[in-house]
Design a binder for these strands. Structure first.
Length: 780
DNA sequence: GTATAAACACTTTTT
DNA sequence: GTGTTTATAC
């Protein structure tokens, strides 16, 4: 097909082929930084250009943000008026939309509530309580996880109870009643007209399974299907896509198996690995040129991911400059790590002219952010943190939204529980307990009980009954207004009439002030929503419309637009899809990265390695990796060894520290020795490093790199106030080390271009220290 | 029923 | 060090 599509010139050969092929199924393996988004956007534009109607194209992304960005780029190419009709969004948002339209077929209403994970956890908790089970055995978060993975694997409660393997596994986990909890949980969700995140996918599958005519309708509607980040799809998503593409097989999935990092959420890397079995005859396109990073970064990342067994082989290459080595730094404590990061950022900013916004600090867990944050703040460096509590998860915001929810769905019991006594109106725990018990025994909703307390024999006194009646009337009066007022007017009316407004205004404490601000922020956001939608001529924007819009938003999606020149702090997961000139990867320690939860299972370990791969490939020019010997964790200081992943990287791409070598190896018992041998065999290192004891880092580090360059020591890089040279401390000098104390220099030498000194620390023993690394104070 | 203090346990990643 | 749950006094 020949047509005028000048944009094709922007693409390289493999990108162009991937864009232009649309006769059948195709798999695009897009290495990190290989222009994946470009291929997707151009492909959609190309389809539109070739005459396909925008409503016929379904494009599924991983985040709302990705969808929004892609949509606006497509709009630039083909015009806003075409782009806006594309079906483009996350699985969750697209299929929640479809579920609203088809809700009646599966016994839900079109205004069904979406329970977030806090809601579902709270519901699980109350079920555990009702069943009089021990919360210490039936841990809500664990139950939630197991139910979630059942749903993601499309195992309904009925199938769950009949599945011998599940039963065995539950018995083994000492939670044989999980199937009861699962069944009750689903009933209660249904009763509340609520779906949790996993339901959005599960119910879509149920809809398509039980209503072939509806499936057919959407098969017919979507003439071409694109899926981004296919490596992170779970079984439920896989099957939805497979069914929709069944008749025409016009499907293109894009992804990178090397960046599959969401298995904990049910993502199955096999979906991408076996794509060509699912879709016989599928064409495979590989995008192997990396346009993002230097050769050194790409090569280092390649050498790391090469250690994984489950992958589609590919050769990622960069034609950019060679660039600097990845710098590995060892510090003593997590606090020191923060100082090191802050110092280095300061130097990079001042000397190398990097903007703060080009720098990111990536960590494995959110809890690591605090020390880093403090270090940056102390030095007056601007930063922003992604993750943690999102705006919509804050208490005060959830409270206000709970009103919205209860008003539009009286059966939303999680919302009701939240606000029945907020602001305090004298309806306490015991009353709420009675209310829920009563609803349970009569198999009706709590709202129904409140509507006719006498009929259901609710055992409360007249005063309490009056309070309950007042609350019900309050919500009812709002509900009566909600058909006339738009979302913004409703929100205003609600916070006024409930007393939320006056309550926050009375108290002038700092925390209340921030609550006030947040509520104002929420009102502002609702106002903007209304204006935008009503301007676009979509009619009045009601409360239910607002709820449908926000229930699937996450903090990833809220724009962080204000003054942009800030260092970014985030988890590696959150960094997926982003890029920065300079990347710091901190906390490269065993039990942290890889996480202690993942070391037992080879599959999990490979995922952790992919996570590290994702982290490294975020960097365009410089990558700094650090690890600490001790770290404050769970209220305790824990010692740690360098991450095993450090020696998965070919040492020729690393600039790593030479640390002190402990001269007298501890006597190693046979058991230790066996363990070490095991580790060495596993890691494929056979050098003289084998018999170090476990706390020695040498066993964990790559073998020394041949002397190549003499790293210039700058104070900022070492944290030293005075650069050390070999001749500064002749034999006989007394020095002070912050760990070993005072010692006497025996001799000095130069090894691999690094100054090294033998120092006798008396009862602490003789140590061989590298001046580049050791912090020595010269005593005169 | 409510407000406060003390005890508790909890931390991987998130649509 | 955090937020959440429980015990205690009012």
């Amino acid at each position: 097909m020949q047509m005028n599509f000048p944009f094709l010139n922007d693409l390289n050969e493999s990108q162009r082929q991937a864009v232009m092929y649309s006769d059948g199924p195709s798999l695009v393996i897009a290495g990190a930084g290989s222009g994946k988004t470009r291929v997707l956007t151009y492909k959609v534009a190309y389809l539109l250009q070739s005459g396909m109607h925008p409503t016929s194209i379904l494009a599924l992304t991983f985040t709302n943000k990705a969808a929004r960005e892609m949509k606006s780029r497509i709009a630039q190419m083909v015009g806003e008026n075409t782009a806006r009709y594309l079906w483009m969004g996350t699985f969750h948002s697209i299929f929640s939309r479809i579920l609203r339209a088809e809700a009646e077929h599966i016994g839900y209403s079109r205004n069904y509530t979406v329970y977030d994970s806090a809601d579902s956890k709270s519901l699980i908790k109350s079920i555990i309580k009702e069943l009089k089970l021990d919360e210490k055995v039936y841990k809500p978060s664990m139950i939630q996880g197991r139910i979630s993975s059942a749903k993601n694997s499309l195992i309904t409660p009925h199938a769950y109870a009949g599945n011998a393997e599940q039963q065995k596994s539950d018995l083994h986990a000492k939670v044989p009643l999980l199937r009861e909890i699962y069944a009750i949980y689903c009933n209660r969700c249904k009763q509340a007209d609520a779906m949790d995140f996993d339901d959005l996918l599960l119910q879509t599958n149920i809809l398509f399974r039980d209503h072939p005519e509806i499936l057919q309708k959407y098969q017919h509607l979507f003439k071409y299907i694109l899926v981004d980040e296919y490596q992170d799809t779970n079984f439920a998503q896989y099957l939805i896509v497979k069914k929709l593409a069944e008749s025409h097989q016009k499907i293109c999935v894009v992804g990178d198996d090397a960046q599959s990092i969401y298995s904990f959420r049910g993502a199955n890397i096999d979906n991408i690995l076996t794509f060509r079995n699912t879709y016989p005859g599928a064409r495979l396109f590989k995008l192997e040129q990396n346009y993002r990073s230097t050769q050194t970064i790409v090569n280092a990342a390649n050498s790391l991911i090469d250690k994984n067994s489950a992958q589609i082989r590919k050769t990622i290459f960069s034609k950019k400059e060679k660039g600097e080595l990845l710098k590995v730094t060892n510090v003593y404590t997590d606090l020191e790590e923060g100082v090191y990061v802050a110092d280095t950022i300061r130097t990079l900013h001042r000397k190398k002219q990097y903007d703060y916004q080009n720098i990111a600090v990536l960590y494995r867990t959110n809890s690591q952010s605090r020390v880093l944050e403090e270090a940056l703040r102390k030095q007056g460096l601007p930063y922003k943190i992604y993750g943690g509590l999102s705006f919509y998860q804050r208490k005060e915001i959830k409270d206000v939204i709970a009103y919205f929810r209860l008003i539009s769905n009286h059966n939303d019991e999680e919302a009701l529980k939240r606000i029945i006594n907020f602001p305090a109106r004298g309806i306490g725990e015991t009353t709420v307990g009675k209310l829920f018990d009563c609803a349970q025994t009569h198999a009706v909703s709590v709202w129904e009980v409140m509507s006719d307390m006498l009929k259901y024999n609710l055992p409360v006194n007249a005063g309490t009954a009056a309070k309950l009646g007042n609350f019900r009337e309050l919500i009812d009066s709002f509900a009566a207004q909600s058909g006339e007022l738009n979302a913004y007017e409703m929100a205003q009316s609600i916070i006024k009439a409930t007393g939320i407004l006056s309550e926050t205004f009375l108290d002038r404490s700092p925390e209340n002030l921030s609550k006030q601000e947040n509520i104002q922020e929420l009102l502002k956001a609702i106002h903007e929503f209304c204006e935008e939608k009503e301007k676009a001529g979509e009619g009045k924007f009601y409360l239910i419309d607002y709820l449908a819009e926000i229930s699937l938003l996450t903090d990833q999606d809220t724009d962080q637009n204000e003054d942009n020149d800030k260092v970014t702090l985030m988890t590696v997961h959150a960094a997926k899809g982003l890029e920065f000139k300079v990347v710091f990867i901190v906390g490269m320690e065993e039990e942290l990265f890889p996480s202690a939860f993942c070391v037992e299972n080879a599959r999990d370990l490979e995922e952790e390695r992919r996570l590290f791969y994702v982290a490294i490939t975020r960097a365009e020019e410089r990558c700094f990796i650090s690890y600490a010997r001790s770290r404050f964790r769970n209220g305790k200081t824990a010692f740690s060894n360098p991450s095993r992943f450090l020696k998965d990287i070919d040492p020729q791409y690393l600039d790593y520290p030479q640390e002190e070598v402990i001269e007298k190896p501890r006597t190693i018992g046979n058991w230790d020795r066996e363990l070490d041998m095991e580790r060495i065999r596993f890691n494929g290192i056979s050098s003289g490093y084998s018999f170090r004891n476990e706390s020695s880092d040498s066993a964990m580090m790559p073998p020394p790199r041949p002397a190549k360059r003499l790293t210039k020591i700058s104070p900022a890089e070492t944290g030293n106030s005075t650069p050390q040279k070999c001749d500064a401390i002749p034999a006989g000098t007394f020095v002070k080390h912050h760990v070993f104390g005072i010692g006497k220099v025996i001799s000095t030498s130069v090894v691999d271009g690094n100054a090294k000194a033998e120092i006798d620390f008396g009862d602490k023993g003789k140590k061989s220290l590298l001046l580049k690394f050791a912090k020595l104070e010269i005593l005169k």
